[in-house]
Write a protein that binds this DNA or RNA. Structure first.
Lengths: 222, 222
DNA sequence: ATTGACAAGATTGTCAACAATCCTGTTACC
DNA sequence: GGTAACAGGATTGTTGACAATCTTGTCAAT
């Protein structure tokens, strides 16, 4: 018998690891992704790398040109906003569905995250806030139980992790973010579909506004 | 110089052709897709077929199991509804954006499609209605100019073409569909973002209701 | 200094062969 | 009759080699 844990499924595993390398910042936007290098880096062969790149291309994380290989896709500012808007629509849908399906245990979990968020905000730990942020959205998606939309959101988020991280650092954004999330949790816990969807919509409106501000100030900070 | 027209880009071309074969009904859900067969069918080699299958897997059109190859993915009834709900959110967003960006020429084009729809409905041509339906949604997406969301919608629709086609055939659905589309076009032409989004939302609510009815009656008709 | 042709290296695209695994029908056994 | 081991074919996974193409650096001519 072979070891199953480290290599459960080569294909998806390699695409997933490559995705993490890209979203994690190991490769910069527009950086060339050379098949042979990736193969040795990931401990596999070029054929698998090629398939992983094809999947990530389909996913929108890399672009490929014939005979010119793959690059990390550079998402323009306009595109980042488009993506965030799409996210707003889908997250609102999911929040509403979560309100319809929330259980007693779910309510506890959601409130726990909000409490941790408040604490992290009080101590000014932006990284932790960012992590709790992701955890809360993931929890809401889990409660909603809509795997299709969850998958869509996953790919959307992976394309703009960098921009989003910058946005939370803007002055005053963290406080608003915590308040908005609290409103979302309240609405979901009440089982109020429309209110939950609206609260989520408003929240991501805030994210988009912050994103636009971050883009406007980009020339100065970078 | 080589001929460019027939083989502009092998990779995407092959994935696209395979996608059309699947959505076009050439392969049934759950049917096994054998790499060697597809290679000879599409006039290429297994490596390219493999990459195309990887992309279509990422896209959700096929499923693959290690050492067991690829199959046309069978979307469950529950999933079909999830997909339609996601579509509702995104189409509403796009309709609203179209209302903000509609031009004089766009208005003419939209109204022309509605007129053709009414005519097709009067003569009971369901296939034509279905085509005009697709044309209208495509036109709205073009006007909105949101390529990101348009791409998402494209992949969503490709997963449920079959179910959707069945839904339009339900008694009374075609009439309602025409009316709903007319309301959408009216709102867009007025430049009313919220009204356009709501009209589109209502329209796809109708689609979803029809889809649910079609699913409920499936055992009898199939 | 700039441009263009050219060669050398790097990288991707294609293909075929082989290995590993799965699937199916057969046979032996109870 | 039913079931389990088994063999053979079918299919997928992996590898390596080669061809095709792009990229970069060099050098000569102006």
């Amino acid at each position: 018998m072979k070891a199953i844990a480290p290599e459960h499924d080569g294909r998806h595993d390699i695409a997933a690891r490559l995705r993490e390398l890209i979203t994690g910042g190991r490769f910069m936007p527009n950086e060339r992704l050379i098949e042979a290098d990736l193969a040795s880096l990931l401990g596999t062969n070029r054929a698998n790398v090629r398939m992983a790149l094809a999947m990530l291309d389909q996913e929108g994380l890399v672009t490929r040109e014939r005979n010119r290989g793959a690059r990390v896709r550079l998402v323009s500012d306009a595109e980042a906003i488009e993506i965030a808007e799409a996210r707003r629509s889908l997250e609102s849908l999911v929040a509403g569905q979560a309100a319809l399906r929330v259980s007693k245990a779910d309510r506890v979990a959601l409130r726990k995250i909000i409490a941790a968020m408040r604490k992290a905000h009080a101590s000014g730990d932006f990284l932790l806030i960012s992590q709790l942020n992701a955890a809360l959205h993931a929890e809401i998606q889990r409660i909603a139980g809509n795997a299709t939309v969850a998958r869509l959101l996953e790919t959307l988020k992976s394309q703009i992790v960098r921009q989003q991280y910058r946005a939370i650092l803007l002055p005053g954004r963290a406080r608003n973010s915590v308040q908005e999330h609290a409103a979302i949790v309240t609405a979901i816990c009440e089982g109020n579909e429309r209110a939950a969807a609206k609260a989520m919509h408003r929240h991501i409106d805030g994210v988009i506004a912050a994103l636009k501000r971050a883009i406007a100030h980009k020339g100065e900070t970078v």
